[in-house]
Write a protein that binds this DNA or RNA. Structure first.
Length: 808
RNA sequence: GGGCCCGUGGUCUAGCCUGGUAUGACACCUCCCUUACACGGAGUAGAUCACCAGUUCAAAUCUGGUCGGGCCCACCA
């Protein structure tokens, strides 16, 4: 029952983590009759180790989960890992030093499966270490059979609604990963480049100059565009231009999309340099030239440049143009290009067969759904809507990769008919399995679809994947729509939006009632953390050096949605907090050894005072937590604990606790009651933030009275002050007390005296009754060490509330 | 170019919705080893709340604008 001199976080955190697991403290009970609070936990991408951004946002969501649990709700808090698709392939390739496309497909896929299994436990352990209170037995992986089945079923359902189509079309392509990617998977990257001014011959016997950053696409030039209002070049419209190094001539057309200010003011239209080129193909009904191979090399349309990678072809073509005297000038420029966010490779546009979900016509519905969800913080919804309104392409869900969930489709060898898998045979691998029926044409020969689905096509189903771990429909219904989707703001456009889309198709309902969006952990200068900048902080090292509680305490320091710079000194502050609460508890437990949780007949004023302040804190904290404002709870509880409770209240009660022979049993009991209640409630308020030390303190002393096996399933504090009957005006009287105490301390400090030194006299004036003063006089004398206190009551209409003169 | 967020003592931050000159931490300075804690305590100093204008008796707080920083999206062929 006694606490050790110092708190040992390392030992304690290990101990309670094991205890929670053994005692099933966070186990989801599907049979419970309590209200359910279901959480759509983000499955972290399996990528080796947890990073500080994870620590930050998972801590924040865990605050909420723990709070809801303490409200008495049955919390559904599953845990999954996202180990599906391209990011996993990249990880395995790096770990095992292999290349997916250089191995037999099934061997690579097997290697991925095995490796993912192998590293999973270690990976998940990081989340356990920071105290995430998920039920780790309610577990899924986005590549396991369960997820495959649901993901393929989703594909088939949407296919049946005629919202999935296959089309050969120009689309965003990553030549390094050799797969199509989605609009959302691109990011910007600034590159040094050259703006090359090339001279073309025309049918007007006059040359025109075209500026481009992509001269290597010259052989795929299909038209020249000039703004119809451009006086300089208007005369060329309707004429033709000759493509250098070939006999081909292309039309010069009028196009209002042309920016007359840029470059030479004339655009050469290649297939395909960017998405405008795709648009113009349709607009002007032009036949494209597909010049690129899937690996980014030029094909036979490039003539003498055939076989060169675009990067190599660029200088070669410039050189050749120079030799023909066709270069007017070359300007070095910086410009922004789209790259694949997974590998930083410049994207290309290639014409390939792809599967799409048709949803552009549903934009308004998605906006509507977004408005049915409660957003915390509310401004994050604007990002969601902004993204939807900017969408230009249907959702490309096929990837030309290996380790992913197969598209459950076959093609008839004879008549090319598309055969879908039967729901009963899911999950299915069309490269191994065959359809259950024969084709309409009678053929039994099929070719399985090689493409796999985009990872987001599966991770957008996490509410279903998690809920369907329970086969019972009744339970399933209790869980959906979920109460909460917690996540960081960077994937609003990916994961959040895609989940809304899937929920729209499958449930015609929102996926969750609330979303909470976390910010990012930044470096001390407010910059993003990234490996290339070398400013990455390893959370495990910080846990080792401080504690998981300290990291969580830090994570509770920013408002939901705000980014937070990481400064190690904040962990020092956090550690100070744990030390302080440890020491305060040491004091409290010492004086509570003979306490029987009895209420005193009458509360001393200062005990009533702390309870009233505590009650205000609890009310405020509960309200804030309801609105996901955990940072307020943390801030206010910390202040209350440190200043009201430790600096003042503990000092004030000492005389009654230590000297009960002199002061009497009841005044001591009153102090004990205040001490017990305030400390227990403080650790309960902090339990969601710092689960380990609060559990240690609870288990050491409070458990034997409270009878609940863990603080984390104990009831969130609520104080009934009426029942406790504090004296009228106790708050006002107590505030006066503290004011006098402050003055006494100040006077001593100014005279360089020790706080234990006695002082001669205090003259205290205040707007309280003489009889009330008599009730606090003894406490006040003992805590100030004053020999005498003279009190004068101030009139109610007096301009000042208090006045104190200290005579040392 | 479009959308959103932010701008408070040296640093980080509370307060802003629901107007009455400001919270706490770190750092600094002075003092105090007092029976929970020196991994502590007491105290001093330090902010015209980015700028301008408006509303108001009164603005960090509301309205409009300016400047600066950040994020997301679009985009230069």
């Amino acid at each position: 029952m006694e606490l050790k001199k110092r708190y040992d976080a390392k030992e304690s955190e290990k101990k309670w983590q094991a205890y929670w697991e053994k005692e099933n403290v966070y186990k989801f009970d599907p049979e419970s009759h309590e209200e359910v609070y279901s959480i759509d936990t983000p499955p972290p991408t399996v990528s080796g180790k947890m990073h500080l951004g994870h620590t930050f946002s998972y801590s924040q969501q865990d605050f909420v989960a723990r709070f809801q649990r303490m409200l008495g709700k049955t919390v559904f808090y599953p845990f999954g890992v996202d180990d599906n698709g391209l990011p996993t392939e990249r990880l395995i390739e790096k770990m095992k030093k292999v290349k997916g496309h250089k191995m037999p497909r099934n061997e690579f896929v097997k290697l991925c499966y095995n490796t993912v299994e192998e590293i999973r436990d270690d990976f998940v352990q990081d989340w356990k270490n920071i105290g995430v209170s998920a039920d780790f037995d309610v577990f899924y992986s986005t590549i396991n059979k369960h997820s495959q089945k649901i993901s393929q079923r989703s594909f088939l359902e949407i296919y049946k609604e005629k919202r999935i189509y296959r089309k050969r079309a120009p689309f965003i392509w990553c030549p390094d990963c050799q797969t199509a990617i989605a609009q959302v998977e691109m990011k910007d990257s600034e590159r040094d480049s050259k703006l090359v001014y090339m001279k073309f011959d025309t049918t007007l016997n006059e040359q025109i100059t075209i500026a481009t950053t992509r001269p290597e696409l010259l052989p795929a030039c299909v038209a020249i565009h000039i703004h119809p209002d451009d006086k300089r070049f208007k005369k060329f419209i309707g004429e033709k231009a000759k493509i250098p190094f070939s006999e081909r001539k292309v039309k010069i057309t009028a196009n209002k999309d042309v920016d007359m200010e840029f470059g030479s003011g004339i655009v050469y239209h290649c297939t395909f340099g960017d998405m405008d080129d795709v648009k113009w193909i349709e607009k002007f009904d032009i036949e494209p030239i597909e010049i690129l191979n899937k690996n980014g090399t030029l094909n036979e349309f490039a003539g003498r440049f055939k076989g060169l990678h675009v990067k190599k072809a660029r200088p070669e073509i410039i050189k050749a143009l120079e030799e023909e005297g066709r270069i007017e000038k070359i300007e070095p420029i910086k410009h922004v290009v789209n790259v694949h966010e997974r590998c930083d490779t410049d994207i290309e546009i290639l014409t390939t067969d792809q599967w799409f979900i048709k949803y552009l016509d549903l934009k308004q519905d998605f906006v509507k759904y977004g408005r049915k969800i409660k957003w915390f913080p509310v401004h994050m919804r604007a990002r969601y809507e902004n993204w939807i309104l900017g969408l230009k392409w249907d959702w490309n869900i096929s990837r030309q990769r290996y380790f992913g969930i197969p598209i459950p489709i076959w093609y008839c060898k004879k008549c090319s008919e598309i055969i879908t898998a039967d729901e009963k045979q899911l999950p299915v691998d069309p490269l191994v399995d065959t359809p259950k029926t024969k084709c309409k044409c009678g053929s039994k020969d099929f070719i399985g679809e090689k493409d796999v689905m985009d990872t987001w096509a599966t991770s957008s189903l996490t509410p279903d994947i998690a809920a369907e771990l329970f086969k019972d429909k009744k339970i399933y219904k209790k869980l959906l729509p979920m109460d909460l989707r917690p996540q960081a703001h960077d994937i609003i456009t990916f994961w959040l939006f895609n989940t809304v889309v899937k929920s729209y198709f499958h449930h015609k309902d929102i996926a969750w009632k609330n979303v909470m969006i976390s910010g990012w952990a930044l470096d001390p200068h407010g910059k993003k953390m990234s490996k290339s900048k070398g400013n990455v902080i390893d959370p495990n090292k910080m846990i080792e050096k401080y504690s998981a509680d300290a990291l969580r305490f830090w994570a509770a320091g920013s408002r939901l949605g705000d980014d937070l710079p990481f400064m190690e000194k904040d962990l020092v502050t956090a550690q100070k907090f744990t030390t302080k609460i440890w020491n305060a508890s040491k004091f409290a437990f010492m004086h509570l050894q003979d306490f029987k949780k009895e209420k005193p007949k009458k509360f001393e004023i200062m005990d009533a005072w702390i309870l009233i302040k505590l009650n205000k804190l609890i009310k405020e904290s509960t309200e804030n937590f309801m609105n996901y404002e955990y940072s307020h709870t943390k801030l206010e509880t910390e202040k209350f604990f440190w200043h009201s409770f430790c600096d003042n209240y503990l000092e004030i009660t000492k005389d009654r606790l230590y000297n009960s022979d002199k002061r009497g049993k009841d005044p001591k009991l009153s102090a004990q009651y205040g001490l017990y209640t305030a400390l227990l409630d403080i650790i309960k308020l902090m339990a969601p933030i710092t689960p380990y030390i609060t559990e240690e303190l609870y288990q050491t002393y409070f458990k034997k009275y409270e009878k609940i096996k863990s603080i984390h399933i104990s009831k969130w504090p609520s104080l009934d002050l009426k029942e406790n009957k504090p004296a009228k005006d106790a708050e006002k009287i107590g505030d006066f007390f503290v004011y006098v105490l402050q003055h006494a301390r100040r006077a001593k400090s100014e005279k360089n005296m020790s706080l234990k030194d006695p002082i001669k006299n205090i003259l205290a004036k205040g707007k309280i009754k003489k009889t009330d003063f008599e009730n606090i006089k003894e406490d006040l004398l003992s805590v100030t060490k004053a020999e005498k206190i003279v009190f004068e009551a101030l009139k109610e209409d007096s301009k000042i509330d208090y006045e104190v003169v200290v005579d040392v």
